[in-house]
Simulated assay, not measured.
Amino acid sequence: MIRCSPGHVCNRVHLGLIEVRQLQYAVLTADSLSFARAAARLNMKQSTLSRKVKDLEIRLGIKLFERTTRGAEVTENGKVFIEQARRIVTDVENLLTTARNVSYGLQGRLAVGYCSSLMSGNLRLAFSDYLGRFPEVQFDGIEGSPEKIIHGLQSQTMDVGVAPIGLSEEGLHSKPLWSERLFVALLEDSELALKDKIYWQDLRREVFVVSSNGIGPILGNLLSARLTEQGFRPAVIYQDTSQESVLSMIAAKRFISVASEASQGVPWQDLRFREIYDGNGPARLDYALYWREDNDNPALKRFFKLIEERYPG
């Protein structure tokens, strides 16, 4: 029997003989394609994580991962289980968030949609600054594609969105924010990595993998715009997975990818991030703030004030 201290929500929910925490370990390992990377994000030893996942496999009676020297690949049987586990983990996290919010949000709620990585960069700093200044505002970050952000703003489930410049929808206002440099992500021993500078034209014969979520479609469209020439279109493969998992796929030596500088908040073994150049210098992706003109949320006004202080003009 599991006991939790009074006033606290227990996240060691049992599913028969399985704990939700074990499901979290399995899902994170699948997303990271590596016990080492998953363990680093969990701040635990790789051997400990591997043992806990192995215990889960024994309880289930199926093998979830093929363990190799380069990482961990989900088995065919494991794929079905991981997707079910992901839904359960998400549901439990939502329940915990609801419980915590009972005493949270005393000064209102702010829902921010975004499609940039939070590993590092301007967006992460802006979010951290807001959370530090206004601890009693319920702050909900919602990651999604630009289309999801537009829908969220129009349906008023989001107060404000941060996305690349270029979104246009009746009733929405926008304000330019910052720009991020663009990088090609590749193996450190590849021929491209040996070049002094990498230009868009150097990438024409490469095969790219990008996420179909978040900023991935924007990057895919950018590749098509930059690399399409008469009789040739770039090879861009979309994967319904996270940006972190996309970067992990590069180790298979079949793909490269494109990432913004915000995606480099953690070290990636065997990967190099090289700036992409065009005729005007380093290639960049410009971001803007989007909101409904009729939104009078006081928490949003505080967010505008913070943004104005950090990024005037």
Rank of each mutant, 00 (worst) to 15 (best):
140 D>N: 14
225 A>D: 13
137 V>K: 03
234 P>R: 08
259 A>K: 03
253 K>H: 14
266 V>P: 00
263 S>T: 10
245 S>Q: 15
191 E>Y: 09
206 E>R: 12
262 A>G: 06
234 P>N: 07
177 L>M: 05
189 D>T: 08
260 S>C: 11
167 L>P: 02
228 T>L: 02
135 P>K: 06
183 F>W: 07
271 L>T: 08
132 G>R: 07
143 E>W: 11
237 I>Q: 12
131 L>K: 14
133 R>Q: 11
171 G>M: 06
173 H>Q: 15
259 A>C: 11
200 W>A: 04
200 W>S: 03
252 A>R: 14
137 V>E: 05
126 A>T: 13
197 K>D: 08
141 G>H: 02
199 Y>P: 06
249 M>F: 11
132 G>L: 02
212 S>T: 14
224 S>A: 13
132 G>P: 02
140 D>Q: 13
129 D>P: 00
150 I>Q: 06
173 H>G: 13
144 G>V: 04
147 E>P: 01
243 Q>G: 15
237 I>L: 14
159 D>F: 01
127 F>I: 15
229 E>C: 10
126 A>V: 15
220 G>E: 02
239 Q>K: 12
153 L>V: 06
270 D>C: 05
160 V>A: 01
238 Y>P: 03
259 A>M: 06
215 I>C: 06
217 P>I: 07
159 D>T: 08
146 P>Y: 02
236 V>A: 03
231 G>K: 00
170 E>L: 12
223 L>G: 08
246 V>L: 07
260 S>D: 07
222 L>H: 00
158 M>V: 10
242 S>L: 09
164 P>G: 00
270 D>H: 13
260 S>L: 08
237 I>D: 12
214 G>Y: 01
252 A>E: 15
175 K>Q: 12
175 K>D: 05
135 P>G: 04
220 G>C: 03
218 I>Y: 01
238 Y>D: 09
218 I>F: 02
238 Y>N: 06
127 F>H: 09
126 A>K: 07
171 G>C: 07
144 G>F: 04
180 E>I: 00
253 K>T: 11
211 S>C: 03
197 K>L: 09
258 V>D: 02
253 K>M: 08
176 P>V: 00
135 P>T: 05
194 L>A: 14
228 T>A: 05
167 L>H: 02
222 L>F: 00
209 V>I: 15
129 D>K: 10
182 L>P: 01
239 Q>L: 14
224 S>D: 13
174 S>E: 08
129 D>V: 04
264 Q>T: 12
